[in-house]
């Protein structure tokens, strides 16, 4: 009997090892495969030239510009709102007030709304109703709404972790509420807030469905906020599904993956530096 129990124990514990190692292997396989096929395609010319002709050979320059435009613009729109909202929830409203519960419920719900629903909402509201057209403005507003809950919740947690004594010391020195928030609370929580913002930017960077429907699919270097453009992930989608120029598809996938991993590792670095 004891032998059997021991055997079962060993079997299941080994299974958890296998499951966990396979997760790492899956990640490594994805990175290795995309790198093996994509890295040789990427060079300065690939990054700085336009797609050529029907088969979209050549580079992906306009899609890179569009992707960065959307990512930075949406982060610029959403960061003051998300951080401000988090400050209100943690520093001003009472912890379990009705308003703060509604805000948290809204944030949770927003974070579970599928990206295609954001897409058709942005299409109906920003593109058509407000008349912004397929543009950087429509795309960035939609993305801003999409990454709002992520940044709001991570900022909230960052502020809640600021030791209470810091605030007391600040008030004790005669600082006003705003002085305490801006110079003590935000300064202490800053690295972790930044981590949340970077993770949000990573999501905006790789988003496809919501961007296709709000920023359009036209190859363009956007200058004004009313210009449309095709981002890298939409470009990859088109190349992959139409089976044209697989080389360019792998190159795009590689760049996309590298930049996204860079965002994530950077966010983690910042978080870890604070831990010390």
């Amino acid at each position: 009997m004891y032998e059997l129990r021991k055997a079962l124990n060993n079997i299941f514990l080994t299974l958890t090892w296998i499951a966990s190692v396979s997760v790492i292997l899956i990640l490594l396989f994805i990175i290795a495969y995309i790198t093996y096929k994509g890295a040789p395609v990427v060079n300065l010319k690939f990054i700085t030239t336009w797609p050529q002709g029907y088969e979209a050979k050549g580079g992906i320059w306009p899609t890179i510009i569009t992707t960065f435009y959307l990512t930075i613009f949406s982060a610029a729109i959403v960061t003051p709102i998300a951080v401000g909202g988090a400050i209100y929830l943690t520093e001003y409203s009472k912890p379990f007030s009705r308003f703060s519960r509604y805000v948290r419920f809204a944030a949770d719900t927003l974070s579970s709304v599928p990206s295609i629903v954001y897409g058709i909402f942005g299409f109906a509201f920003f593109v058509i109703y407000l008349g912004f057209g397929w543009s950087m403005l429509s795309g960035s507003l939609t993305l801003a709404l999409m990454i709002l809950p992520l940044i709001l919740r991570s900022t909230e947690e960052a502020i809640l972790d600021v030791p209470y004594g810091y605030k007391e010391a600040s008030y004790g020195l005669g600082a006003t509420k705003w002085q305490t928030i801006s110079r003590v609370v935000l300064r202490t929580a800053f690295p972790r807030i930044l981590t949340g913002v970077i993770l949000g930017m990573g999501r905006a960077f790789g988003e496809t469905a919501a961007v296709m429907l709000t920023a359009g699919m036209a190859l363009n270097i956007p200058i004004s906020v009313f210009d449309g453009g095709r981002n890298m992930s939409s470009h990859l989608f088109l190349l992959a599904t139409e089976g044209i120029s697989l080389d360019a598809a792998f190159g795009t996938a590689f760049l996309l993956l590298v930049i996204i991993l860079f965002f994530n590792v950077g966010a983690k670095r910042i978080a870890r530096r604070v831990g010390k």
């Binding site: 997760v23 899956i26 990640l27 790789g206 988003e207 469905a209 939409s234 991993l261 965002f263």
Partner: peptide
């Protein structure tokens, strides 16, 4: 590894 998997865009999963 799990955080990085979560960060990979869906279009790359589709492509893979």
């Amino acid at each position: 590894a799990i955080e990085l998997l979560a960060g990979i865009p869906s279009v790359i999963y589709g492509f893979m």
